[in-house]
Design a binder for these strands. Sequence first.
DNA 1: TCGCTAATTGATCATTTGATTACTTTTGTG
DNA 2: CACAAAAGTAATCAAATGATCAATTAGCGA
Lengths: 234, 234
Amino acid sequence: MANFDDQILPKAGCEGAKEAAPKRRRKSSEDRMLDIIEAAADHFAEVGFSGGTRDIAKRVGVTQPLLYRYFPDKNSLIEAVYKSVYLESWNADWDIGLQDRTQSVRSRFDQFYRDYTAANFNPRWLRISYFAGLRDAQINQWYNHLIEELILKQLVREHRVELGLPDDAYVTTEELEVAWQIHGGLLHYGWRRHVLNLPVSNDMDQVICDALDMYFSVAEGVYMRMARSNADIA
Amino acid sequence: MANFDDQILPKAGCEGAKEAAPKRRRKSSEDRMLDIIEAAADHFAEVGFSGGTRDIAKRVGVTQPLLYRYFPDKNSLIEAVYKSVYLESWNADWDIGLQDRTQSVRSRFDQFYRDYTAANFNPRWLRISYFAGLRDAQINQWYNHLIEELILKQLVREHRVELGLPDDAYVTTEELEVAWQIHGGLLHYGWRRHVLNLPVSNDMDQVICDALDMYFSVAEGVYMRMARSNADIA
DNA sequence: TCGCTAATTGATCATTTGATTACTTTTGTG
DNA sequence: CACAAAAGTAATCAAATGATCAATTAGCGA
């Protein structure tokens, strides 16, 4: 069939144009694995995890049974996609930068949210995230825990320190909810922009700035209220 | 087969217990239609719109081909579910209450968000909403337009009036984004609570209160900034 | 160049899918 | 009561699904 040439050659040709054309018609196990995960992520992002394995194979330019030499079943492929999508777009330096006390808390978090949204606010990441949450809460629970521990609690603690309030490692549920309000609000901006394709503001920096304004203008009051009710209990 | 009795009789028995037992073994066209939409909504909310028509029929207690006497194809059923889920949980009085100037803007919106979250923050509505957004942006675009026109722009306009600022019907993109920040933040709270099943604050009223605090503490500044840059242009 | 290893394919299976058809049974009404 | 309209079912189809396995062939090292 002409199928074979139609699918394999363009791909090989494309790669050839990119770097030192290998005439390899077969890839190493590792490379092929990455190809598959990449294609699967793209496809799942578009149609959800009910997307077919044949469509994924077609994107890669191989036959469908090949997927089963790399993953025992579809679910394993889905989990590899989870891992890939989440890990690729997480920067290990983020939570370090948030502790750099030579910068104001405000500017640290301003910078963080610029980086974070630049890395994650695109149709692929957002759609995979929401699809994953709907399909299997577990992976998203883990991710939200990450955000909570590494980012939001950091925000509350560092901000308390900057305000000269007693440095209590404990962050109350309500303090967390207020911090989540920024994160959730920004995420919903991403949803409207990259999933719903609505005509939202294009000025991401301004959106982040306003979101942080909202937080920083009420945060102190919340910390104080929490501290007071802690004192009441003690 | 025993199937028939297993599925139909318990349903009939249940109904009999509810009100003046009709020995009807068949329902009116309207009632059956509602049954199907209801079951479809439940099922789609659980597994997404790729859920099977046979599973829906099983929930209703009828055979699968019957669905095709009520809907020409699966997509029509999905659209009926959209309509049902969105319309059922929208209260036409909401945008009227928001204009009641005997109450402060703050308390009007506080009341609104209590009602709104009480009506919509449940796994079914939230999951269907997100599934719908991922599957077909159109329906969600329409809904977001509704929120924007009837709620968020109202918030900006009424708040401006209350502050004694010039009553301009026009709401800028940035003002809207700030208002969306509340709405999106709350929606993400719903996502974490009812979709991801995370252990969030149970005090919905407090969450709403904090979210509105955040808005009302920065809103005036934003209005002024917008008015100033409008003046610059003029 | 030969030959072995491993990447890849082709053919195929059992289920499940949305959808259609012809048939059966209930129910309200003249 | 009888009968027609309508609710509902059984049987079935074609296409698509995830998955398996034996056969093929590219590519690397001896």
